[in-house]
Amino acid sequence: MTDVAESKIWIIAEQRQRELAEVSLEIIGKAIDLAKQTRWKVAAVLMGHQLNTLSRQILSYGVHEVLVADEPMLVNYCNQAYVKVLENAVKRFQPEVLLMGATALGSDLAARLAARLRIGLSAHCIDFELTEKGDLFGIIPWLGGNSLCRISCPHTRPQMATVIPGVFQVPKMNGIQGRIIPLETHIEQKDLSYHVLETKHVKGPQSELEMAEVVVAGGWGIGDNDGWKLIENLADRLNGAVGATRPAVDESWAKEGQMIGTSGLTVRPKLYIGIALSGHPHHLVGVKEPELVVGINIDPNAPIFESCDIGLVGDYREIVQSMIKCIDVQYGGGDE
């Protein structure tokens, strides 16, 4: 094939069943912005089967090239097959930067490729800096979000990073200017090291939590099931829904479907109350455009107090119990 990719910043356009992951568009926006530093061009790499419509859709977001590996054996994501296609493309066209979403697919594909090429990988970035010379620095949350760390892979190329979904804006569509470059795949049956029998999307209608105007979220500091009941009672009084951080889900106080943030839901409440949680960006990134953020934590230095409007410092049990009492008094009675 004679087509040569010129772009030096590549992003993985992640799709499953021909549905594009929103984070891929978010990264395109950021990549186009970064590319101004070096006057590089941006390409999206799309792998799967029957991708004509999707390729054109991605072009309309302003990328210079879409590199497409379209092949029946790529219909389902299988990392050893996908990494083979990507490895060949990277070796052939030598991009400087390669970004993808920190999703189930992106994190796995990035880790495989980094190990195969023996190169570095900056995980879960929330921002980037690109120098004029083309050195990429990823910014990651560190130590429970108390600080940020600049992370880089200075000696290996491409400079690879995964990006937390929801931190960048999806760019506006601005008409198609770029072009589509087909990639050779060379996939054989033996590259499909596992067999996907079924892919199920259980997305369905939005959950109560995603639509709630009031979200009360709890974290690790809730401590036990009784504590969790308490914040459920508070949410109930406020006609709200209960959300959780990853540690609260790991402790089984909350269900997976209640997790807000990077690997969970995005909520858009008017009022968000974060209780006994640190305020780590992995969680807070899932709380979009709240009007009022309240933080309740026993540690006056908890990062949540840098992300909230009103802070309450103290034992959450005492505070929440008192709040419930106050609300009940206002309604002139105890439990309904």
Binding site: R118, S122, H155, F305, D309, I310, E318
Partner: peptide
């Protein structure tokens, strides 16, 4: 290790919460 931790950024406190005073009640 190809991946290198760089310097640390302690972001300026974007927004200082109004901390309520008094007992928990």
């Amino acid at each position: 290790s190809s991946t290198q931790m760089g310097d640390f950024i302690f972001p300026p406190k974007k927004k200082k919460a109004e901390i309520l005073q008094g007992s928990p009640e």
